[in-house]
């Protein structure tokens, strides 16, 4: 399914999405290189999630096209996994049941699925919790289950929509570290949506900035040349991090101010 390394995993070509009454995103062209970590930042309500949903095939663009590994996307993107901002676990399934959902839906061999579920329960530190129901877990653990649920089907592309937005700062830092560790060995393409510029820079190879909505445009794409593996605890005081932060924030700041004005108007 993968093209040659360094090819394009996700390509938005002049994508516009209109909803009844307003335009979410306007004429956006953006690419995620295969195996890279791309973050999309922008003020609240700028259509970041809309962009992600179009890459997932959950929403279709009104104009333009989305290509996945060079092929136009129609319907659900079968090579993508999606970690949602909200809780998406099935509350009536246990941790194991939720992790097994993907393999089960795809008709995987039951024994093999069971084995890989055990492996993922171990990798996400959920041993001893396999028979718990989601409501018995903390927010951080529910995110781990969601992570295992998404990664167990081994998607080539992982889409994440502010997956850690609802977590406290420390849990969030740990989860970010775990995502990077998972991704590092995987050669998967990640598209990560957040409103937190620090998080975006710390995790990504590239940061795409969207303008204030409605009708958001792409302001720019910035390269983050920080080497990997990264130490997420210390990276934010690294002078090069600060420099990248300043240059992106200079552009993002204006958009954030614009969105404030619009809210107050």
């Amino acid at each position: 399914m993968n093209g040659s390394p360094g090819g394009t995993a996700i390509r938005f070509q002049g994508v516009t999405k209109r909803f009844p009454g307003y335009t979410a995103v306007q004429n956006i062209s953006l690419e995620a290189r295969e195996g890279s970590f791309l973050s999309v930042v922008g003020p609240s309500g700028c259509g970041k999630s809309t962009l992600l949903n179009m890459a997932a095939g959950l929403t279709q663009p009104s104009e333009g096209a989305v290509e996945i590994f060079g092929k136009p996307l129609t319907g659900i993107n079968a090579s993508a996994g999606y970690m949602f901002q909200q809780d998406a676990l099935l509350p009536w399934k246990t941790v194991r049941g939720n992790i097994l959902l993907g393999p089960e839906l795809r008709g995987a061999d039951a024994g093999q699925a069971e084995q890989s579920a055990r492996e993922w329960i171990r990798r996400t530190g959920l041993e001893g919790f396999a028979d718990r129901y989601p409501h018995q877990l903390s927010g951080g653990m529910r995110k781990r289950v969601a992570m295992a649920q998404t990664w167990i089907v081994n998607p080539d592309i992982v889409l994440m929509d502010e997956p850690f937005g609802a977590l406290d700062v420390h849990t969030r830092l740990r989860m970010e570290g775990e995502i990077l560790a998972l991704w590092a060995g995987s050669r998967k393409t990640v598209m990560f949506v957040t409103h937190d510029l620090e998080e975006a820079i710390a995790l990504s190879d590239e940061v795409a900035v969207l303008s204030a909505g409605p009708a958001s445009r792409l302001v720019g794409v910035y390269q983050v040349g920080l080497e990997r593996p990264r130490n997420l605890i210390d990276i934010k005081t690294d002078p090069r991090f600060v420099e990248i932060y300043r240059s992106i924030w200079g552009d993002l700041r204006e958009e954030v101010l614009k969105s404030y004005e619009r809210i107050q108007a």
């Binding site: 997932a56 959950l58 659900i76 993107n77 909200q86 998406a88 959902l101 839906l105 649920q149 089907v153």
Partner: peptide
């Protein structure tokens, strides 16, 4: 969100109803 999550994990319409 639950429906979308199940669809992304590969659920058909019939599986969506059941699960």
């Amino acid at each position: 969100v639950m429906v979308n999550n199940a669809r992304m994990l590969g659920a058909s319409e019939r599986q969506l109803i059941r699960h």
